[in-house]
């Protein structure tokens, strides 16, 4: 019973922390779906959104604004920053590269990453800024059935809730709206989309804006967890195995991939770790991703590669 309680605790903790990976992975999926670009700058966008939010929040609170007003204004400000970023990226990075190879576009996002990282720290500062949007204490559940109960972090639960709402919203946007359909069309074939009158530059702006807002949501949760700091950009590396497992083109895939990675690495650390010396958590996700690549290269939920013969 003690072992089962421990298993449950690790599983729940792992699943919830996996949702947080999914939040970052979602931004990648959005841009990849709509423009075929693997956006290396997603991590930098999370940093930028987080910094814009935390710094404006601090400033507003210091000037005597009530906390809730400050949060709303801060979120609006960070949202505007992400919109400006989306416009700049479209105008100066992707716009001139219409119809270029996917690899070229990918390289250009690496460039954008450095610019974004540098600019955001130059403008907003480069310290560690604590963000307190969500409660960070823990619940102890089922104390009657398990000795000591099961520890669940409240922040992780919040993260899960937010991710759920976000995914539902995005799914509706992509499947039910005219702009969403146009986004999927652009993802399939830029030139053909242009030929039927879909303005590519507008679509790319929308995609980067949505990805920026997803980055903002991710920044609220991760910023509360770690503090807003430069190392948040490395989340992008953690999102990579999530994407490979779930599939680059699938929103549900990003969620399921995140859950698998989160639960997998925590369980491996908890149960395999003691036998082989620990530290598994940091590389287990990549091994999982490698296994998926061997068996199902498009990922669990990725779009089938359509080839007519």
């Amino acid at each position: 019973m003690v072992l089962f309680g421990q298993f449950l605790e690790i599983l729940i903790g792992g699943l919830l922390s996996g949702v947080l990976y999914s939040l970052v992975a979602l931004g990648f999926v959005l841009i990849f779906k709509a423009s075929g670009v693997f956006n290396f700058a997603q991590g930098a966008m999370v940093l930028l959104a987080g910094l814009a939010l935390v710094r404006s929040l601090d400033l507003l609170v210091a000037n005597g604004f009530p906390f809730w007003t400050a949060i709303i204004l801060g979120l609006v400000f960070a949202g505007i920053i992400m919109a400006v970023t989306a416009w700049l990226v479209e105008r100066f990075v992707l716009g001139p590269l219409v119809n270029q190879d996917g690899l070229t576009l990918f390289m250009s996002t690496i460039g954008a990453t450095f610019v974004l990282e540098g600019a955001s720290q130059m403008i907003f500062g480069s310290d560690v800024y604590p963000l307190r949007l969500f409660p960070t204490d823990a619940w102890f559940l089922f104390e009657s059935s398990f000795p000591g109960g099961i520890l669940v972090n409240k922040l992780d639960v919040w993260g899960g809730l937010i991710a759920g709402i976000l995914v539902a919203g995005l799914a509706i946007f992509f499947q039910r709206t005219k702009t969403g359909r146009a986004l999927r069309a652009v993802a399939d074939d830029h030139a053909a989309a242009q030929s039927v009158g879909i303005p590519i530059s507008w679509i790319w702006f929308v995609v980067w804006l949505v990805a920026g807002l997803v980055a903002l949501v991710a920044a609220t949760v991760w910023g509360t967890k770690l503090g807003v700091q430069f190392s948040i950009t490395f989340l992008a590396l953690k999102a990579l195995p999530v994407l490979i497992i779930g599939g680059f083109t699938s929103i549900p895939g990003a969620i399921v991939g995140g859950l698998i990675v989160g639960a997998g690495e925590k369980l491996a650390e908890g149960f395999l770790g003691p036998h082989i010396g620990g530290g598994i958590e940091y590389w287990f996700a990549y091994v999982l991703a490698l296994a998926v690549l061997l068996v199902r290269p498009q990922g669990l939920f990725g779009e089938r590669i359509i080839e007519r013969i």
Binding site: K178, R181, A185, A187, D188, D189, A191, A192, A193, S195
Partner: peptide, 26 residues
């Protein structure tokens, strides 16, 4: 004035109906 490109260029991953609806974007 609209062009139908060489090689058809349908949106492969969209359904036929979604393909048609993209034409109404403007």
């Amino acid at each position: 004035c609209i062009q139908v490109m060489e090689g058809r260029r349908c949106f492969a991953h969209l359904t036929v109906e979604d393909n048609l609806m993209t034409g109404a974007f403007t």
